[in-house]
Design a protein around this nucleic acid. Structure first.
Lengths: 219, 219
DNA sequence: GTCTATAATCGGATAGAC
DNA sequence: GTCTATCCGATTATAGAC
């Protein structure tokens, strides 16, 4: 995403029309893949770009050709995290659908993200826990409006008598927290479960438990 | 806590019996206070001990007299976090008491910790999200057994027919996640609420919501 | 686009005087 | 216990050749 086409001009007569750009995307993908992993494990300051470069198979200086500063790499990682998450959660909350169906789908989607993109979830979590110092504005503009929309939908259901009159904001916080934790706190969960990592069954149990909790309090 | 009495021997005849030790404790307290704040905001690598020292009112070299390595400071911070948390949560789960009462108290205590010690909660969260690389063993020995005890109590209640047959492990994960998030994700919550920080009312609403969810799914 | 070289700074840690 | 001085590796970033 956010593909810059800076150096098409560097391909003067262009034998193969988009080869440079294509190569750039492959390299960027490799860099970003390793960057998410390291940022999730050690945070922004704890991650040396030299190590990202090494794992991605290029030199530190070469990495800085693609991402001129460490901050630009970090922001790009978070941009991609948000892009992915927003695409999956897009327009899930529809006030005209059955609340139970919507909430089931919402929990399932959020939990699926925790399962499939735990590193993305952790990078985002670390940024928020640290006070969202580098990415606060983006969260304000891209995440908060969506959360407020979801809350508005919950409140609509309450006004229409479709669900019990709970605090819609804190209901959303609860759903977010429970689903998010299966990515962020998996290290502690695996210690409790005495297993190497969470598996499909754990996520099924989680979905059952969370869905039960959410729906049972809305009757 | 964990007060080492190394240099009582440095007070040769001792005019005022414990003055050296007392002074040490004051300095350590100041250091630890600033260390929690910085570790919570920037993580382990992101925190220069020079800045901890400056905020605590001493030189970097002087700080290293009290904490010989950065790791020892970090571990001490986490030790204190755990001490505080364990003291508050000690023996809350009693299989002979009424489940509803126990769970209400459990949620309230955990939420109170999030409100009163958000920095402690965040340092711990960051360590876990990063994979608990430096503190995993301590978590295994000091936290996991307690969580397993709590789970066992829940399962006892289920066996005795006192609560509905839910998945005890994931119920605990859910309670942990929801309460923890009011410390860890407060930056995002305040953005959604459009307020500078969470206040007493927010925590009351949170407690009501979480308690309702937990209890309603156990009938 | 990739490489070599290097600048410039930071950060943890140690030595030794007082 | 505190201070001055200092070492040394790591790290971001830039310059310039190919």
């Amino acid at each position: 995403m956010t593909t810059k086409l800076d150096e098409i001009t560097l391909e003067p007569v262009a034998g193969l029309p988009g080869k440079r750009v294509q190569h750039r995307e492959e390299v960027e993908t490799a860099i970003l893949r390793e960057a998410v992993r390291l940022f999730a494990e050690r945070g922004f300051e704890g991650t040396p770009i030299a190590e990202v470069a090494e794992r991605a198979g290029l030199s530190k200086q070469n990495l800085m050709y693609y991402f001129p500063t460490k901050q630009s790499l970090y922001k790009r990682v978070l941009d991609d995290v948000l892009d992915d998450w927003l695409a999956r959660m897009a327009s899930l909350a529809d006030p005209d659908q059955d609340p139970a169906d919507v909430l089931r789908a919402y929990v399932a989607a959020k939990l699926r993200f925790s399962r499939e993109q735990p590193l993305a979830s952790r990078v985002y979590a670390m940024e928020v826990i640290g006070g969202a110092k580098m990415y606060g504005e983006q969260i304000r503009h891209r995440v908060v409006p969506l959360l407020r929309q979801d809350i508005a939908v919950f409140e609509r259901w309450i006004a229409d008598g479709k669900i019990a009159p709970v605090n819609a904001t804190h209901l959303l916080f609860a759903v977010w927290a429970m689903t998010q934790s299966y990515a962020d706190f998996s290290a502690q969960m695996t210690l409790v479960l005495g297993r190497e990592e969470l598996d499909a069954r754990d996520f099924e149990e989680a979905e059952r438990m969370i869905t039960t909790m959410v729906l049972s309090c809305l009757n």
